[in-house]
Amino acid sequence: MATTLDVVSFNVFIGIRSRAAPARTRAVEFCRRLTDLDVDFLLLQEVWTRSLLRFIGARLPSMRHVAWKPGLAGQPAGGLAVFSRRPLRAPTYTSFASARPGDGNLAFRGKSAVSCRMQGILAVRTADGELLLGNTQLTANHDGDWSQGNRHYGIHRQQVGIVRRAMRAHTAPLSVLGGDFNIASSSPLYPFIVDGWHDPFARTDQPTYRAEFLPAGRPAHRIDYLLVSGQPVASADLILAEPVELANGTSFLSDHLALRIRAGQ
């Protein structure tokens, strides 16, 4: 395998009832930009339909290898997909269904249980076995509170534990774990997330979720991560940040920014 690699993680945001343009309209533009960047691997979250997966894949001609697992309705399980320039082995998908929400009222626990069944972690190795990629999305926390006393804390801790075990089930000289963790870097769970990993975005700690999509006055946080083990990181940047002109007006490409790392000797 090449000694350098370029990886992007991006929550594409399906955008139902949102201020953003429709998902396919935005996909045309972010696929064009990602193709121009010449990245090696692309970790996508919120690809909730098989038709959207095909639509995106048709616009990433340089990334003809794709890993995903079908859910109950044939959709990408967890809304997760990995696109690659390099051949991939068969992926594995681990659901969060074993997590048990114990806090909050009955309605919250029921909603959390549904979320756990819908979400999980996708793991895949390159065909040569040299690189392990993990892609995940955890349950959203709309409270804006990531303290230990918050009702999401227990479910998030269990989900992070599932992610860690799923990644440890595979071995490779180099590992990359990315996704929308929905846990702020200020949370007491942050050390549990990054234990054993290098977080190349820790120094700048810039928000990855857009304040424009939050209630007025609520600060944005860094809730997306792209972590590395086994190789030094040459650079780490947030991309797809600016609003763009689309056919139906100006729009952000997502409610999240994309994370990009370039690793190698």
Rank of each mutant, 00 (worst) to 15 (best):
F83W: 11
D199E: 10
T204N: 04
A216R: 09
L227C: 04
P232G: 10
C31H: 08
E212G: 00
R100S: 11
S251E: 09
V163C: 12
R168S: 09
G178Q: 00
P101G: 02
Q119N: 05
Q148M: 00
T250A: 07
F83T: 04
D237Q: 15
T94Y: 01
A21L: 10
V47T: 14
P87A: 13
D205C: 07
I16D: 08
T126R: 00
L131W: 12
A77F: 06
A172L: 01
P191N: 10
A58G: 09
L226N: 02
I155F: 08
G161L: 02
L253R: 01
P91L: 08
F201T: 13
S187H: 06
F10T: 10
R203Y: 12
P219M: 06
A236Q: 07
Q231P: 08
G149S: 06
Q265G: 14
L174C: 13
D103A: 01
F83E: 05
N150M: 02
G78A: 08
M1C: 06
T3S: 14
H156W: 06
P243Y: 10
R19G: 09
T204D: 11
L5K: 07
M1A: 11
F213N: 03
D38P: 03
H142K: 12
V160D: 06
A2V: 02
S147A: 01
I155Y: 02
C116I: 13
H256C: 05
H198K: 10
G129Y: 08
H221Y: 04
S115V: 08
A172G: 03
D180T: 00
R54Q: 10
A73H: 12
A241P: 05
Y225P: 00
R218D: 05
H152P: 06
T136V: 13
A123F: 03
S115K: 15
R33E: 04
A73Y: 10
F252Y: 15
V7L: 02
R203P: 10
L43F: 02
R125W: 09
H152E: 03
N182T: 11
Y209L: 13
L122E: 03
A234D: 15
S235Q: 15
H170K: 11
A67N: 01
F83H: 01
L259T: 13
W146R: 09
A202M: 05
T25W: 05
P200K: 08
S18P: 06
C31N: 13
V124Q: 07
P91S: 05
R117L: 14
V160S: 05
G78T: 12
R100C: 14
R210Y: 15
S51F: 07
V160I: 14
H198W: 13
N182Y: 13
I261R: 00
W68F: 11
V124N: 07
W197E: 08
E29V: 13
Y209F: 03
T4R: 15
F13G: 00
T35F: 05
S18A: 15
N150V: 00
R165A: 10
L253H: 04
Q75M: 05
V194K: 10
M1F: 04
G154V: 03
D224T: 01
L240W: 04
A211T: 12
L189I: 11
Y153M: 07
L88T: 02
L132C: 00
D255L: 07
I155R: 01
L259Y: 02
V194M: 11
L122N: 09
G79K: 04
M167Q: 14
V7A: 03
D6Q: 14
R210T: 07
L227K: 04
G15R: 14
L80Q: 09
G71C: 07
D128P: 11
S62W: 06
